[in-house]
Design a protein around this nucleic acid. Structure first.
Lengths: 277, 277
DNA sequence: CATCATCGTTCCGGCTCCCGGAACGAACGA
DNA sequence: TCGTTCGTTCCGGGAGCCGGAACGATGATG
């Protein structure tokens, strides 16, 4: 049985905690390479990762030889075919994602809002996949994007499914940075709100992270009550208004329940998703 | 200006050409980790990558600490949140993919067939994204999957857009393995068929790779006529029958043209896709 | 046209730390 | 109870990673 590893609770400082081994450096460069904001020239990647230029140069060369990176025009590197294949495979092979996809599509159709699935990475939530309604108002949520747990519906949903001490540790002890005027900045207050979330079965983000954006989310539990992620919907406040929350909330909760049930039922075995819970 | 790097033309042997550096080994393990066929225990990953057990163990530990892998029940490792985030980001950030997605959806709706976008990785095509019609017959094509260039529509499409010598080199000199009774096994014959593909603007795979499966594809060209990938549709032969090929072929070609035009127009700049070509 | 800043690239000596065979304990099935 | 297979740890040797420094090319600037 593998010994549990502490999943670094605090991350995402600009200098990523001094990558020590060559593997960590490689991961750091890969991570920088796929960030959407171009350009990805050698100097840019070196600056972003905080690694010396020759080191990044050597790594990029290794990646290019293996097909994980490709030198574009103007010295701009981009993700190579192997990396795209790896990414596609990873997303297609993940059992939670495979099960969540049809549920998200259904949820989007029935609510009319952007539906997404996020997983926890330390103290932030990462949006892994989404199902968006055709031309809509620009919702600030993109695949691969991140949002802190303390100011998001998916974050609260996942926190509510965690043991209280664990949630408290993830929130930390000091006041949290305000994202809007409605952000709940006191870790204690967030913690105090979780029982209600547990009770209702879904969490509501009322412009905590972004002005004019409201969200609803519910936790997805895997085998052994492990928190596998969260299902949520996002919309602008005048579309996703307060009255509809009471209607949409249970729908989000049910969707998360469907994914949870499928995840427990047979991890990857059954092809059909049972509509239970 | 970065020196061009030879993108290993021959790959995909079971023992991946003896990964030399620690970075190559890390990539090999990551690649094995996301393969859909479980389980991913230490011994399995070691066997699949051909690396010694302690080496894989150390790498997995590094991955776990960084959140790129997660130890599951029974010593089964799976992709961690960082890896899923990286994958989602990579797929969302790739300009060709961002542009291809809506075109694929449109193509699927108009043809009723599974539409997909693939890129070239050496002598194989990797399916990076797809848009599939709701419950249909099981089409043997999954995201992240691969198929040799010589026996697929996307492969022929990309070969047709390459300079003849390059295509010849990718095909090799010796007879190609048969996948079905209709597989074109002679590299010279494949090469001889490419001008017709260039002329028509799309390639047709008539059960070359799989029994009862037909496919149509057209190449996507980026700035400077670089082959960015190919757009295609796949279906069972009795659904995607011979008569419809003449109708669907131009639609596939037009879809690929749309992506190409958008790709040339502004790499990531413009948000709307022009319906040109 | 001259000058400068910046970028990508190469070099090389030092020494880190990667490597993997071997050994051990635990878990499991027979 | 025994045998097998797994995950894990240890450790000495040396492969090869490391990154400061230097160089040539390129493009911007005055």
């Amino acid at each position: 049985m593998p010994k549990p590893v502490n999943t670094s609770a605090s991350r995402r400082e600009e200098r990523p905690a001094a990558a020590t081994g060559p593997v960590d450096k490689a991961l750091a460069v890969l991570d920088a390479l796929v960030q959407p904001d171009a350009p990805h020239r050698l100097a840019d990647l070196a600056a972003r990762t905080g690694l010396p230029k020759p080191t990044v140069h050597r790594l990029l060369h290794t990646f290019a030889e293996a097909g994980y990176a490709v030198p574009g025009p103007g010295g701009n590197y981009q993700a190579g075919p192997r990396l795209l294949g790896l990414a596609a495979t990873a997303l297609a092979a993940s059992s939670e994602l495979r099960l969540a996809r049809p549920v998200l599509d259904d949820l989007r159709l029935r609510t009319g809002h952007l539906a997404h699935f996020s997983v926890r990475d330390g103290a932030v939530a990462v949006h892994v996949t989404q199902s968006e309604p055709s031309p809509t108002y620009r919702i600030p949520l993109t695949a691969g994007g991140e949002v802190p747990l303390y100011c998001s519906a998916v974050g609260w949903a996942m926190l509510s499914a965690l043991p209280s001490p664990a949630a408290a540790e993830l929130l930390g002890g000091r006041p949290l940075p305000a994202r809007t005027s409605r952000t709940v900045r006191d870790p204690g207050a967030v913690l105090a709100a979780l029982p209600a979330v547990r009770e209702r079965g879904y969490a509501v983000d009322d412009e905590y992270a972004e002005q004019d954006v409201r969200a609803i989310a519910a936790p997805v539990l895997g085998p052994g009550d492990r928190v596998a992620g969260a299902v949520g919907i996002v919309g602008l406040t005048f579309t996703l208004d307060e009255e509809s929350v009471a209607v949409l909330g249970p729908m989000v909760r049910a969707a998360a329940g469907t994914v949870s049930a499928a995840l427990r039922g047979g991890p990857g075995a059954l092809g059909i998703v049972r509509g239970q819970e």
